[in-house]
Amino acid sequence: MRGVTRRYGQVLVFDADDTLWENNVVFERVVDDFLTWVDHPTLDRAEIRAILADVERANAAAHGYGSRVFLRSLGECFEHLRERPATDTERRGIEELATALVEHRVELMPGVAEALVDLAGRHELLLLTKGEREEQQRKLDASDLLHHFTAAHIVPEKNADTYRWLANAHGFDPSRGWMIGNSPRSDILPARAAGMNAVFIPNENTWVLEHDELDRGDEGVLHLAVFPDLLRHF
């Protein structure tokens, strides 16, 4: 603990996917299977992956997030590559590739359950996740973590207005709030824009659309290696 100041009485707001439990790694396994299945005659895997990312970006803006939107993106990417509509057989093939998304069990990050028990004794804990409501709720229920949080919110998008709304809804000064997550784009940057502090815990499997540059000189952002490191600061 030497050289580290532990804070008390803070409002800690936690991201869910890829912060409390693994998520995107399952999507990436499906993408890897999709790239093999497509087997394009002229484009390599990296080129197909870039096309899929463009399709995902457009669909996220128009339709949000989650397995159903991801499945839609796979289908649209396939049709773009083949330059024709997918057949019924091909659509079933794509759906079979994505079966793992539905069957995937929630796998908590190491130390999450134990750390939340400790943190809940000193701070108010909130949960903020984005995505398709039913799908996110299923994961929240399966995690067996909800009892640690004062409230859990599922929102369609995370931006600065979302964090301003959260602080207002729960009546806390943004300067006393900390957004804890793995996504620069959805967790760290918009929270900072709303006047909150943030804790960045990187995940090597973070979705490419969640990447963004962080200012290492920003003193309002803590950079930690793993989730249990929170206990040294809070």
Rank of each mutant, 00 (worst) to 15 (best):
G131T: 09
N159D: 15
N197H: 15
L125D: 09
Q137H: 13
R192M: 03
L189K: 12
S186V: 00
R133Q: 13
K158W: 05
T129K: 13
D141H: 10
L127A: 15
Q136T: 04
R176F: 00
A152I: 10
A152E: 03
L145M: 08
S143H: 12
I180Q: 07
S143I: 11
R192K: 13
R176P: 00
A160Y: 06
R164L: 09
T162V: 04
A194W: 12
H147M: 05
L128Y: 13
L128F: 09
L126E: 05
P174L: 10
Y163G: 03
N197S: 12
T162R: 12
A142V: 01
N197V: 02
L189G: 00
P190V: 03
D161Q: 15
N159E: 07
S183K: 11
G131V: 08
W165E: 12
R185N: 00
G171H: 12
E124F: 01
A191Y: 07
R138Q: 14
S186N: 14
T150S: 14
L189E: 04
G177A: 15
G177L: 07
G177Q: 09
L127S: 14
G171W: 09
N168F: 02
G171S: 11
L146H: 06
P184I: 05
D161R: 14
D187R: 10
H170M: 02
E135D: 11
P190H: 11
K139H: 14
E134I: 06
L127R: 06
D173K: 09
A191H: 09
A160W: 06
E135V: 02
I154L: 08
L145G: 05
A167S: 15
H148G: 01
A167W: 09
G171P: 06
E132R: 13
R176K: 12
Q137T: 10
P174I: 04
H148K: 03
A169G: 06
Y163A: 03
R192E: 07
S183R: 11
M179Q: 06
